[in-house]
């Protein structure tokens, strides 16, 4: 188990290193950073001066090692636009995005797992079709439209929920439903598929032949096996949400990472973009690692020889 964890951890570090190289090269090749810093009114001399002052004229390799050196000390650079440290910007924005992500994935799981189990219990019946219908709706309705519909219904007609901002917990309910309902269908289909397969398996027949109670079979013997692939998907979707949803965050005026990323991209604020990409990849790596560990805890067969 320890060996498995260390191996996965090593792989994760390698992935992050590679991503840091790619983001660094892209951000220095896609646009001349000196141009980005100097603004529209700068003369050629100004740009050249900036280029020398920030060391953009040096070989890319050296610049990368400098960047990594600063990174290891927790220095993510400064925003070209606001001049503030990137780490400060991220720390400001991250809590809102994280809260939204946790609520969204929570909503998706609460809907998807029971719905998937119920659909699997009665395959190809009306119940199954209804679950499929809900899933298709979730998948087919675009985020922004679902968000707007929710705002219309709960915000304007019923006036139950605030329609924008992030000052209280209540503000997050609608955005979480809008974002979560997009992640829900895939989860539900996977739970259903897993459960259908597990319920057909020989060991469930054994359990039934031994008189094990139905709910024990479903929720203990069955779900534990069916949920294994679902855990990995939850990790990926949660990572996606932690990266911030540009659409949902702008509709509900939540000042999160997604909104920050969009702002930075539209104005070529490279240090911020670079930092966001790196952080999101790290989150992904950590989450997949967590999912792998959780999977190996639940499925003894994974623990060996991997």
């Amino acid at each position: 188990m320890l060996e498995f964890t260390l191996k996965r951890l090593g792989l994760g570090v390698l992935v992050i290193l590679i991503i840091s190289v790619i983001t660094f090269i892209l951000s220095h090749v896609a646009i001349d950073p000196a141009l980005g810093l100097s603004g529209d009114s700068a003369t050629a001399e100004d740009i050249e001066a900036i280029r020398q002052r920030y060391g953009f004229d040096r070989p890319l390799m050296l610049q990368y090692f400098d960047y990594m050196g600063r990174l290891l000390q927790g220095d993510l650079g400064q925003s070209y636009l606001s001049g503030r440290p990137v780490s400060e910007l991220l720390a400001e924005r991250f809590p809102d995005t994280a809260l939204l992500a946790v609520l969204s994935i929570g909503f998706a799981m609460i809907v998807a797992i029971p719905l998937g189990v119920i659909a699997a219990l009665k395959p190809n019946t009306l119940v199954d079709r209804a679950a499929l219908f809900i899933a298709v709706c979730g998948q087919a309705i675009p985020n922004f439209w679902a968000g707007l519909l929710l705002i219309l219904l709960f915000g304007i007609y019923l006036q139950w929920l605030p329609i924008s901002g992030s000052t209280s917990f209540v503000h997050f309910i609608m955005p979480a439903i809008a974002l979560g309902s997009y992640a829900m269908p895939a989860l539900m289909r996977l739970v259903r598929a897993g459960m259908v397969e597990v319920l057909r398996s020989d060991y469930i027949r054994t359990a039934r032949a031994m008189g094990v109670r139905r709910r024990t079979i479903l929720f203990k013997y069955g779900l534990r096996n069916a949920i294994l692939p679902v855990i990995s998907l939850i990790a990926v979707q949660f990572g996606f949400m932690l990266g911030g949803s540009i659409v949902i965050e702008s509709i509900f005026a939540i000042n999160g990472i997604g909104y920050l990323a969009w702002q930075s991209m539209s104005r070529a604020d490279m240090p911020v973009i670079q930092a966001i990409v790196l952080i999101i990849s790290m989150i992904y790596v950590v989450l997949t690692l967590a999912a792998d560990l959780l999977n190996s805890l639940m499925d003894p067969r994974i623990r060996i020889n991997r």
């Binding site: 020989d202 060991y203 027949r205 054994t206 032949a209 013997y221 096996n225 639940m298 499925d299 003894p300």
Partner: peptide, 14 residues
């Protein structure tokens, strides 16, 4: 009680 044909898959792997 009942015993089945496929011992390889008849026990719950987890």
């Amino acid at each position: 009680s009942m015993i089945f044909q496929e011992p390889m898959t008849a026990l719950n792997p987890t």
